[in-house]
């Protein structure tokens, strides 16, 4: 249906989540168009990570929906949700979680291994070249600089051409220059791959940088989350 094409890239509707201790959190409704990105701001404990987990289908909402291109992620079965996450979602965690047992190239192959798919070596070569890490293929994570490791983590997140790229505190423990470089890289990479970007952070530098890059933020009520075009 044409509605699928017109459907927002990401929509959060009446989303609530109840924690094990009984406390609940309500999240603002969000509609993210294909050309839009989302910035989640707030201090620790404000629910950023929970919202990311809900978007990724790692948590099931107690009410409401997470819609990705019209698909209700929470309504998918466990196996379908895993497959969906692998296919449509890229994730750059705060700690990069590059496997120290594997070289860079094998780390980049992980999304295919996880999905039980044959590795698309051409795609890996394309991404390595795009992110300037082709010379690092056989290095282990401990042999990389912080910036190189960030690039590898971003490349890994983009390997399967996701629709949505989630970045959790991507600038934590980085100096200003490195933080700016990572943000630029995330913006460029997501734009280059046609993916929507969701950044969760409590780092005020991120806001400034993204405002400089693209000032079209959308203020969201209830939670300090913003949409920028």
């Amino acid at each position: 249906m044409s509605g699928a094409a017109k459907a927002p890239s990401l929509a959060l509707q009446g989303l609530r989540y109840r924690y094990r201790d009984g406390t609940a959190m309500a999240f603002p409704d969000v509609k993210l168009a294909n050309n839009q990105h989302l910035l989640l701001l707030g201090p620790s404990g404000s629910g950023k990570s929970t919202l990311l987990a809900l978007m990724a289908g790692l948590l099931t909402p107690s009410a409401g929906q997470v819609l990705m291109a019209g698909t209700d992620v929470g309504a998918l079965g466990a196996a379908a949700r895993d497959a969906w996450r692998g296919r449509h979602l890229g994730f750059v965690p705060q700690r990069l979680h590059l496997s120290s047992a594997l070289c860079v190239l094998d780390n980049l192959r992980l999304p295919f291994v996880c999905a039980g798919l044959a590795c698309d070596e051409a795609r890996l070569a394309e991404l390595q070249s795009a992110l300037g890490i082709d010379a690092l293929a056989q290095r282990r994570p401990h042999e990389l600089s912080v910036g190189q490791a960030q690039r590898v983590a971003i490349a890994r997140a983009l390997v399967r051409r996701p629709r949505l790229l989630l970045a959790d505190e991507p600038t934590a423990s980085l100096d200003d220059a490195a933080a700016a470089a990572v943000l630029d890289l995330l913006m460029q990479a997501s734009a280059g791959q046609g993916a929507s970007l969701v950044v969760a952070t409590h780092d005020s530098r991120v806001v400034g940088r993204l405002l400089q890059s693209d000032p079209a933020f959308v203020e969201l009520p209830g939670m300090d989350a913003r949409i920028f075009a």
Partner: peptide
Amino acid sequence: ERQSDLAMLRMLGAPPRR
């Protein structure tokens, strides 16, 4: 020790059985 690595595999789309 590899809890995070394994969790990352889940995040990358690996089902629990994998």
